[in-house]
């Protein structure tokens, strides 16, 4: 492992994103716009539904977006021959993966800062815990999305397939994470499944911050999500083969 190579990969990924203005704009603005849409939907309803759902969505955006972006870009690296060239150079597999995780983690930090800023500052989302901790959860979520995106890209031969991994890997987590039905009210089997899905812990962390704001419980959830992310990166490293057929 080498910090020089990791930083080189991260710097290169950020330069690529910076050059692609439309992607950059969408990465940064879409979560804000969608949070606003959500707030608007519940505007005329009694109660504070926005406060109940908003935090979960703040957890889902970075995860989903980074999952998609990473799986497609990694697939492109595999297809264009740049990955083969890099793997024939003195580059550790983890350098490559951590470089991606670092770049998308940074983007997620900016993305979340904007989304949290809009939600708390303009839309009146009530947060009882420290607001910066929302950002930490979002960044860890993004790293999780990056890790899983890298992992699944190994199993996709085309960009069509890579995009289909989104309904396969992301939507079930979205359905079972507690956003639609609180996790304790799910049928026991689904509750058990929900307990082993990383997004559940990410959403738990966000909801805890907005609700009881027990920081120890938030950090425990963050640790679980981070554990999943690291396991994803390790498995992803195993799918990067220097020698291919």
């Amino acid at each position: 492992m080498s910090a020089r190579v990791t930083l080189a990969v991260a710097g290169r990924v950020l330069t690529q994103v910076r050059r692609d203005h439309r992607t950059l704009a969408m990465l940064l603005l879409l979560p804000c716009l969608l949070m606003t849409l959500l707030w608007w939907m519940f505007l005329d309803l009694p109660g504070d539904v926005f406060d109940g759902i908003g935090p979960g969505l703040l957890a889902i955006f970075p995860f989903t977006v980074m999952f998609l972006v990473t799986s497609v870009t990694t697939l492109r690296e595999r297809g264009s021959g740049t990955l083969e060239r890099l793997l024939s150079m003195p580059m550790g597999k983890l350098d490559f993966l951590l470089g991606y995780a670092l770049a998308f983690g940074l983007l997620a930090a900016v993305q979340s800062a904007l989304a949290v800023g809009v939600s708390v500052g303009l839309l009146g989302l009530e947060v009882n815990g420290p607001v910066w901790l929302l950002g930490v959860v979002a960044v860890v979520d993004a790293v999780l999305g990056t890790a899983l995106g890298l992992l699944v890209s190994a199993f996709a031969d085309t960009e069509f397939q890579a995009v289909q991994f989104m309904p396969a890997f992301v939507i079930p987590q979205l359905l079972l994470c507690g956003l639609f039905v609180a996790r304790e009210f799910l049928p026991p089997v689904l509750q058990a499944i929900s307990d082993v899905l990383p997004l559940s812990y990410a959403v738990d962390a966000m909801q805890e911050l907005v609700g009881a704001a027990d920081q120890a419980s938030v950090w425990a959830d963050v640790a679980v999500v981070l554990g999943f992310a690291l396991a994803g990166l390790a498995l992803g490293a195993a799918t990067l083969r220097r020698r291919t057929a």
Binding site: A8, T15, Q16, S80, G81, T82, E84, R85, S88, P90
Partner: peptide, 30 residues
């Protein structure tokens, strides 16, 4: 790994970077 230079049949450089940016990136890796 740093004694063999390799050019694949497809140009294995990043299309969305400039020539200099590509070279700087690979130079840092090496």
């Amino acid at each position: 790994r740093d004694r063999v230079g390799y050019v694949t049949q497809a140009a294995s450089v990043y299309d969305d970077l400039t020539v200099a940016e590509n070279l700087h990136f690979f130079a840092r890796v090496l």
